[in-house]
Write a protein that binds this DNA or RNA. Structure first.
Lengths: 190, 190
DNA sequence: ATCAGAATGTGATCTACATCACGTAACCAA
DNA sequence: TTGGTTACGTGATGTAGATCACATTCTGAT
């Protein structure tokens, strides 16, 4: 099974689990399929799970005043996503997650993650490492926001995710960069 | 000893260690004192440690083109700071850390942290939780950057750290907000 | 094949904030 | 006390990017 192997390879980079331990770990993940445009987490929802992407592309985004959208993350295969603030604090979602393309994900509940972390030191190690990577990436993006103009951030993005340019509409790239779609469009020519 | 109790209370919120375990944990921290203005990590340095603040106030910042400074974090008592990118990837520092006031810190090496995490599940749990908190805060700040104007970000900052207003010079607050000191000054009146 | 609604491009104008320039006040060290 | 550095305020002007407006192309559903 494709999904199982993808997850196994993903965690093997950081944690060593026996075949048996991994099977137990994997048994807590629920496979789910979504169509392009479907909502996985909507603002106001109770958030119980985080999602490991097997195929397709998701976006995690915030909507301001029902008007402006800011994308926090594009989630591609082997990426994790959720509204972590809502998930950890057990508060209603303020972040939305939906599907840019058809997508398959593995869903892991907060309760199960904590149970697995408590039961297996190596799993706790994996999740520490994963969150650490996310923290470092988030700091880097914050710095880029403060330090760079839109053009530079755009070029950084294309280097970081070359696939994205043809995969997602430009106005979503603009929403990730925190810029209007018009300004992004004008960057092409200049 | 003040520092020991502060650290003990700090980690007790998340992890349960026996007295003996905690003593062993604590034995890996090296107490250090710094004077106002002293540099703890300078750009280009090899970074071996992270720092737990006991007293005083540090800043972690990036300098662009030897001109502009952007503050990633003010570190107050019970906060942790370092250049985590450099620390985890064993690359030269790009972030500086120095002292806004006289400060006492506890220094923990990367090697010792990893040793302690590997040896004690509860310690690994603590560091996962801590990084998770940092990640959530960093995401929140990124969103605020994209979504809010300077005035709103300034008001958020004053709510988050009320002490800061009288503790640190205004141009450092401007550097945290990613705004010129002139603009920050003008916000007072409007 | 057709039509409606997205997605994209592009001009004209507006605005928040940066930058430059200068003055004054506060804080030190000799 | 004095002189030098740092902090802070404030006016004048410049500019990146937002917003508004409209045209064009693409796409997907019937």
């Amino acid at each position: 099974m494709e999904a199982k192997i993808l997850l196994q390879q993903h965690i093997a980079k950081t944690a060593s689990l026996t075949e048996e331990e991994f099977n137990y770990f994997f048994s807590h993940f629920k496979p789910m399929s979504f169509k392009k445009g479907q909502t996985i987490i909507g603002a106001g929802d109770k958030v119980d799970c985080e999602y490991f992407v097997i195929s397709g592309c998701l976006k995690a985004f915030f909507i301001n005043d029902e008007i402006k959208m800011y994308i926090l993350q594009f989630a591609m295969p082997t990426w994790w996503t959720s509204d972590y603030t809502a998930l950890y604090n057990q508060t209603p979602a303020t972040i939305n997650v939906d599907c840019i393309t058809d997508a398959e994900v593995l869903c892991l509940s907060n309760t199960d993650r904590e149970k697995l972390c408590a039961g297996f030191h190596q799993i706790e190690h994996f999740f520490r490492w994963r969150t650490n990577k996310g923290y470092i990436a988030s700091q880097k993006r914050l710095l880029s926001f403060m330090n760079n103009n839109v053009k530079t951030r755009y070029e950084e993005l294309l280097i970081l995710y070359p696939q994205l340019y043809n995969l997602v509409p430009k106005h979503l790239i603009a929403a990730y960069l925190g810029v209007s779609r018009e300004t992004l469009s004008r960057l092409h020519n200049s």
